[in-house]
């Protein structure tokens, strides 16, 4: 039995809350970053395979989401900085060892590219709008011509963006819940899954809906596997990792994690999507929305629970 009492310092109310430095904007940003990465990746792949005409929602309509999501995510990120006026300091240096540094640089490239992507479809998305200026029209033609080049660039960048949302957390060995190598692939899979769900939500043809239904179903199964891997890794780990696992299994985050993320966010939408592919009449908005909400809650749970876990000494 070991009992530790903080005589001075840590029983001052101002100290401990200030250690929990990351709040809801970080969880929201991780979700939006993953969602954007998912849609960008799918749209890029469709363009590279020359299937734009078969899957118009993916490349055109759903692609409006990433720039909006990234901007909201960036605002959330800056909102959670304690010294936001100095945020330009991120771009005075490249620090390979710091995931946040290369995440910031990837965002600096991906965000404008996601805007250009939407702009390349401008005249198709808004046929009644006139671009007014000759140089803008020329620029639109230029972007349109280079869409495939953008797609080639965006495939690796969107994967890095998706993985980075997980690596950002897993790089902290002081937080045992985060410090596992599976978090990067897990967040990438979850991000791709939410991206596919967003496309399903907007898709107009059954062909597009069914394709992304299959993709999403595969991603959900992979994600469930990765979650089992994560829990097993913790279960076989040291005391600090066991303590971290207990937060999710039988601890204060159990209902949120298993109820809302695993069952409502993965298993039920997975079953509904399988039924819809089989030909049963299922309103696709239900599984798609469940996946999106589950993904968001998953990020909140991981950010909140991770900050509680710590080394015991």
């Amino acid at each position: 039995m070991q009992e530790e009492i903080f005589v001075s310092g840590r029983d001052i109310p101002n100290i401990d809350p200030s250690l929990e430095i990351w709040h809801w904007p970080i969880g929201l940003y991780l979700f939006l970053g993953g969602l954007a990465a998912g849609i960008i990746l799918f749209a890029s792949i469709v363009v590279i395979l020359n299937k734009e005409d078969e899957y118009p929602t993916t490349v055109k309509y759903a692609s409006i989401i990433p720039p909006i999501a990234l901007v909201i995510g960036l605002i959330a990120l800056i909102y959670d900085l304690k010294n936001p006026l100095y945020s330009w300091q991120l771009y005075t240096t490249i620090r390979i060892e710091s995931p946040m540094s290369w995440g910031a640089w990837v965002l600096l490239i991906v965000t404008p590219l996601s805007f250009l992507w939407v702009f390349s479809y401008f005249s198709e998305l808004f046929p009644t709008w006139d671009l007014k200026f000759e140089w803008l029209k020329k620029f639109e033609q230029f972007v349109k011509k280079n869409r495939k080049n953008m797609a080639y660039l965006l495939v690796p960048l969107s994967i890095i963006l998706g993985v980075y949302t997980g690596i950002l957390l897993s790089a902290f060995n002081a937080r045992p819940l985060w410090n596992n190598a599976i978090l990067g692939p897990l967040f990438l899979t979850s991000g791709l899954s939410t991206g596919a769900a967003a496309i399903i939500l907007l898709a107009k043809t059954a062909q597009e809906r069914h394709l992304f239904g299959k993709v999403d179903l595969a991603l959900i199964i992979i994600e469930l596997g990765l979650i089992i891997h994560m829990l097993m890794g913790m279960y076989a780990g040291s005391e600090v990792q066991l303590e971290a696992m207990r937060l999710l299994v039988g601890g204060e985050f159990t209902v949120l994690f298993f109820g809302f993320v695993v069952i409502l966010g993965l298993i039920i939408p997975g079953i509904l999507e399988a039924l819809e592919i089989k030909g049963y009449k299922v309103p696709v908005a239900i599984p798609a929305l469940l996946v999106l909400i589950g993904g968001l809650i998953f990020r909140f749970v991981m950010v909140e629970a991770g900050q509680i876990t710590r080394y015991l000494y």
Partner: peptide, 25 residues
């Protein structure tokens, strides 16, 4: 040079860091 992102606070196994309430660093 500190933007107050809190990454170092999360990374410290000793919880030795805090965000300065006025300066933000």
């Amino acid at each position: 040079e500190c933007i107050g992102c809190g990454a170092c606070i999360e990374s410290c196994p000793y919880d030795a860091r805090y965000s300065h309430p006025e300066g933000g660093y």
